[in-house]
Write a protein that binds this DNA or RNA. Structure first.
Lengths: 159, 159
DNA sequence: CTCTATGCAAAGCTTTTGCACGTTA
DNA sequence: TAACGTGCAAAAGCTTTGCATAGAG
């Protein structure tokens, strides 16, 4: 079933309505290639039409979440980011604390840990809403070279 | 070295000053038994004295973070939570999306996954600032029994 | 026709900031 | 006595909400 069909079904099931505004927001989400903030999504919507209010975008994102079509990432730096859940495999996110970039990672390697948590403390991990913080490889290298440079400077200045 | 000594050293090192307000906030953090919001920390501070402003609490929490004495947890539901990093082993946090409780988990079982990320995509996980979302065992059971009840209701109503 | 959804404006919350005054080293 | 830190009040983001009106079913 396509996203739109699923959306329609869910709306009907709950007695909600299918409006142009909701259609546009879903359309935008569908074409995102990476997680985006509410502000960014609103900007995309505005490129199509000025007749959708920001509050409607928020309300629609809530709906889409409720239907499981969209997930929210708590990115730390950049606040909440919304991501379309298409036919992608389940995945989790890495957020770089330095540059703010978000990366998607397949869940496979994480599953043993999820299983461990389920077995030991009975915690059921929600992969889609989990974001792992850290440093991406680019920022890691940058940090490393800075560290090296500082070390050199210290050695120089202490002479 | 005790927390207070470390705090003093770091302050001196950076040319910052040791003030009663900073002492009180550190004291409060030291006695927290679980992560707390800025609001909660401020409330605790107020129990001791009314002469510390909320903005000072925020500024001090920033300082403590900078010194590595405090870490911030992005709990989702409950916003930012601050946690004192004592002599505890490195750990990560689980946040229940239903009841909002935070749980600490030793890092050991997570390390293989962290290593996998480092090896495959060069991402360096920051354990202390990572929070895994999901359902705690209590909420899981609750959700399960609700689901069962709904199923029973559906079966009844369809007869 | 009924009841939901929307736009608009205002309010809420958490966190940050500007500034004059108080304090630390 | 020179910076730095603080309280106070205001601002800044981001998100939510109340309400009259528009619009879907």
């Amino acid at each position: 079933m396509s996203c739109e069909q699923l959306f329609l079904e869910e709306l009907k099931k709950k007695g909600y309505r299918f409006t142009p505004q909701r259609e546009i927001v879903l359309e935008i989400m569908h074409h995102l290639d990476k997680p985006a903030s509410a502000e960014e999504i609103f900007a995309h919507v505005q490129e199509i039409t000025k007749t959708v209010d920001k509050s409607t975008v928020y309300r629609t994102l809530d709906l889409l979440q409720e239907f499981g079509l969209v997930s929210v990432i708590d990115s730390g730096e950049r606040g909440h980011l919304y991501e379309h859940l298409g036919t992608d495999k389940p995945h989790l996110h890495l957020a770089c604390e330095s540059c703010g970039k978000i990366f998607a990672v397949d869940q496979e390697a994480f599953l043993p840990f999820a299983e461990y948590l389920a077995d030991t403390v009975g915690f059921e991990v929600s992969l889609q809403s989990t974001t792992i913080q850290g440093l991406c490889s680019a920022c890691r290298e940058k940090a490393h070279s800075v560290a090296v440079r500082e070390q050199v400077l210290e050695e120089t200045s202490s002479n």
